[in-house]
Design a protein around this nucleic acid. Structure first.
Lengths: 124, 124
DNA sequence: CTCAAAAATTAGAATTAGTCTAAAAATTTT
DNA sequence: AAAATTTTTAGACTAATTCTAATTTTTGAG
């Protein structure tokens, strides 16, 4: 666990946001101004291999990182693009039942309008 | 519906595979040798807007296209990377119940080893 | 039918996210 | 403390996708 790796992990854990690698690079540079882009990418992979974070694919195609390795649902607002976590009770067992076997991981993204945006739309 | 758009749609519908844009480009070129890459991308977007196909994000980051617009699960073999469709009964209503509202669409990817690869692994 | 306007196509340049490389720096082993 | 290993760095590179500007095709009004 190098200073760089530690700093990256701290930023990811500092907020429930789902950062992109590029966002992490600029955040971490506030602390370690010389950290390189490749180091961020290397460490994101290392941290995922170590099961400390989870990579998810953002709506725009760029990867984002979740401070929890445990799979869960994400719902993405079709308006503001914000990503929220949510749990589906028993979902893993449901999936296992359907597939008839254990699985490695899953990724669930639901696109819908978030409560805030719904209110904004109602006003307009 | 131009010749180009028609040809792209036909290739997508010709097989239950989930093609990448690049694969579609070379397939369609067998029929329309001068079709340009940009046309394929434009039409994939147009076809998705028209709800005739659905874009899904492949494991490697490149987009893939599904000949059905209706959301359903995909399971992706961790070994051979093949993508299979699967249905979860009542899943849409479950999601609606959890979110307390209608949603636009969802994308569910489950990573696991497919039956063929499991057999291959057992032999080895 | 025929001209103008709008939409789609084309080739290729540009952009973006991510990976790779080789040298330098840091860390660990002995 | 020297040698071996791992990590970091800057920047080159790649792959997928988007953008651009010119051309072609299609549409629709007269």
């Amino acid at each position: 666990m190098t200073r760089q790796r530690q700093a990256i992990l701290e930023v990811i854990r500092s907020d429930k946001r789902h950062y992109t690698a590029e966002e992490l690079l600029s955040e971490v540079r506030r602390v370690l101004p010389n950290i390189s882009r490749a180091t961020v990418y290397n460490n994101l992979h290392a941290l995922e291999d170590a099961r400390l974070i989870r990579r998810i694919t953002g709506e725009d195609g760029s990867d984002r990182y979740d401070s929890s390795y445990i799979p869960h649902g994400h719902f993405i607002c079709s308006r503001c693009k914000e990503i929220y976590d949510f749990e589906i009770p028993e979902f893993s067992s449901t999936l296992e039942g359907l597939l008839g076997d254990k699985f490695d991981s899953y990724e669930l993204k639901v696109r819908c309008v978030c409560p805030q945006c719904r209110d904004r739309l109602r006003e307009a």
